[in-house]
Design a binder for these strands. Structure first.
Length: 695
DNA sequence: CTAGGGTTAG
């Protein structure tokens, strides 16, 4: 059969054909081998210098990604015209790389023997290629050629140039091209709306949109709505968001997937996750991007469990994840401390070859650091060739989280010498690292150099970091002086930081001052009452503690319940204070009893009922109830082999008693205990914590 | 020629 088929094919190739029949067959070809065969027939029939069939064949070869074949066909052709050149440039841009398209374009221009005289179509192909390469020189030269060629008022080229300048980071030039256009259509304006949004010029992006809505210029179309949504989302402008949503409904775009996706992202960023979810349910055919938007929406709003289960649902719907999906899931893993899920995702990344994506690799570093594997995070960091500012920031803050201040400092200086641009977040990360490691001098130096050498004016978060550095180190007087020196209102976060420092250093006087400011500026926040009450308790001022709690109670405030998570054999177990709901509760409490005995022998002193004589019954119970941290640790000890590291995650800051107890437990059991709390990591080993009690 | 989704700090 096969032999017979081959004979027929060969025979067919000797049938002479006309140009029209060749053109017809070329456009009908459905496989690359058809095309190759037709090429052979063209040569056999003497069509090698026919421009129409050669152009068609080149075009079709690019359709099948036969780049080499197409290229050699082109260059063996003696006198290509503009159209054939356009086919080559366009084909290279979409098949091979924008770079080779630009290179081909340049070569063609240099071949003076051919009168190329690139037309507006050529520019419409080559300008986007230059834009995606981000080559400034090529870009500016192309703009010059457009002016010389007299194509300035061409709307296609105008839009391409505007987009090019945005991608080159020259929004001033984009604006200039836009302003000088004699006539504007929707595409041109849309290019401006989206470009301004991508350049973080959110208000300006919305400004162009508003003008279109008010009837000044071309009418708003579907793309306009889609393009303006990211800017609205970034500003978290819910009012405008609702306006845009209404407009979309009015114009009939309400069921358009991209519009709905943009709205989902908008509502997620505004914290309106219910609305986002509602819209997600309205999408007829969910595509990859809409799944991603919803997954990321959940992850951003702390609904990490929901994010992970939607990820699973997405895979069951036979939609394959891409690097964007992976990034959101890794961010959820990092928040959850879900190392085993994170490792599984890492496997997925390797098998899908997503490693080279910088968002993915940065999110991986962050995940490993936040899940306790700082060594693995660093190993990955070293293997990344194209690190950006965010990558460095993630690694520096990872070290900070683990209390490795010196490593963080070393990396910070390496970052400076690497020439990577520093950002405000870089300074927040390194200042936090200093505060978590008690590096006061170093922190002060960096704070000074931030303004002096790098031109960053400190914002309130940086000031809060400095207060934290001084406060944690016990320099409460200096911290107060520092606050005095801040121009204007220092702001709530600063006082809250100071209050936290008072907790560590049991300074009731400064604490009272800070808490007064806080109760005044943010009376509905239970956190400050809890903190103040804990400060009184740790100073053994139980009536004071009880009083603060009573005030909070009268104001009907409730505390976020503390809970601790531990993963055993890839299964999560969550404990609350005084929890008896776990099936192994009896064994867990027995283990705690046993541990208490051993810890006391080693010198541990727990708060006892007798020391709480001035406290009301209800308060007493709260104070001596077995905290979730201890339950999780005891369960971990029972469920793992001796010597295994215990990893726990707490949603709030670990309390003083549990911190001390964990140190003792690590000694008497000879186990390493790693505790991730709301602030940082604590690694307890042989009676010592890695935080050096700077918690 | 334009359009929706992603990483770091708090």
């Amino acid at each position: 059969m096969a032999a017979a088929g081959a004979v027929t094919t060969v025979a067919a190739s000797y049938v002479p054909r006309t140009r029209d029949s060749f053109l017809h067959l070329l456009s009908k070809a459905v496989t690359l081998s058809h095309l190759t065969e037709l090429h052979a027939q063209l040569l056999h029939n003497g069509f090698q210098s026919d421009i129409a069939t050669t152009t068609k064949l080149t075009h079709r070869l690019f359709d099948f990604s036969a780049v080499h074949h197409a290229r050699s066909l082109f260059f063996s052709f003696p006198e290509p015209d503009r159209f054939l050149c356009n086919v080559l440039v366009k084909g290279l841009a979409s098949n091979e790389s924008p770079r080779s398209a630009i290179a081909a374009f340049k070569r063609l221009r240099e071949r003076k023997s051919i009168d190329l005289g690139p037309d507006n179509f050529t520019y419409a192909f080559v300008i986007p290629a230059a834009a995606s390469v981000g080559d400034v020189k090529v870009g500016i030269s192309l703009h010059g050629q457009v002016i010389v060629g007299g194509f300035c008022s061409d709307l296609f080229i105008g839009s391409a140039l505007i987009d090019l300048y945005f991608k080159l980071g020259r929004d001033d030039m984009a604006r200039k091209v836009f302003d000088e256009m004699p006539e504007r259509d929707a595409v041109l304006c849309n290019t401006m709306v989206s470009g301004l949004g991508r350049s973080s010029r959110f208000e300006d992006s919305i400004g162009i949109f508003r003008r279109m809505v008010s009837g000044d210029g071309p009418k708003v179309d579907c793309t306009t709505v889609i393009s303006v949504l990211p800017a609205v989302a970034e500003l978290q402008d819910m009012r405008l968001g609702l306006e845009v949503h209404c407009l979309a409904i009015k114009l009939g775009f309400y069921s358009h997937v991209s519009v709905l996706t943009g709205l989902i992202s908008l509502y997620s960023k505004c914290g309106a996750i219910r609305s986002a979810n509602l819209l997600f349910g309205q999408i007829g055919r969910r595509d990859l991007i809409s799944w991603n938007a919803m997954i990321s929406g959940y992850a951003q709003n702390g609904l990490t469990e929901a994010a992970v289960s939607l990820f699973q649902e997405m895979q069951m719907s036979n939609v394959s994840p891409n690097p964007v999906t992976i990034t959101s899931i890794l961010s959820a893993c990092a928040q959850l401390g879900a190392l085993s899920l994170g490792q599984w995702v890492h496997g997925l990344i390797k098998s899908n070859k997503f490693d080279s994506n910088i968002y993915v690799s940065t999110a991986l570093i962050d995940m490993y650091a936040k899940c306790g594997s700082i060594v693995e995070a660093r190993r990955l960091f070293e293997s990344i060739p194209n690190k950006n500012d965010v990558t460095w920031n993630a690694m520096i803050s990872g070290y900070g989280l683990h209390g490795h201040g010196q490593e963080a400092l070393k990396l910070f200086h390496e970052m400076v010498s690497s020439g990577t641009p520093l950002t405000r977040i870089t300074f927040l990360s390194i200042l936090h690292a200093c505060s978590h490691s008690g590096l006061v001098k170093e922190g002060e130096q960096i704070f000074k150099s931030m303004k002096r050498d790098h031109g960053f004016e400190p914002i309130s978060e940086h000031n809060a970091c400095m207060v934290d550095i001084l406060g944690r180190a016990g320099k409460l007087k200096e911290a107060l002086d520092f606050i005095e020196g801040i121009p204007g209102d220092p702001g709530t976060p600063i006082w809250s930081t100071l209050l936290g420092a008072c907790m560590v250093h049991k300074d009731t006087n400064v604490a009272r001052m800070a808490s007064e400011k806080l109760f005044e500026s943010d009376p509905g926040n239970m956190g400050y009452y809890v903190l103040m009450s804990n400060i009184y308790s740790s100073d053994k001022n139980y009536p004071g503690a009880a009083f603060v709690r009573q005030v909070a109670k009268k104001r009907n405030l409730s505390k976020t319940p503390g809970c601790t998570l531990i993963e055993i054999h890839q299964k999560p177990h969550v404990f609350k204070a005084g929890d008896w709901s776990h099936p192994l509760s009896r064994a867990i409490y027995a283990e705690l009893e046993r541990l208490n005995g051993k810890m006391k022998e080693a010198g541990y002193q727990a708060e006892t009922m007798t020391s709480l004589h001035d406290v009301e019954e209800e308060e007493k119970e709260l104070m001596v109830n077995v905290h979730s941290e201890k339950l999780a640790i005891a369960f971990g000890l029972l469920s793992t082999e001796p010597g295994t590291e215990i990893r726990i995650f707490k949603n709030l800051r670990i309390c003083l008693d549990c911190h001390t107890a964990s140190k003792y437990i690590s000694r008497v059991t000879q186990r390493v205990i790693v505790a991730r709390d709301a602030n940082r990591f604590h690694r307890f080993e042989d009676g010592v914590c890695s935080c050096g009690d700077y918690w």
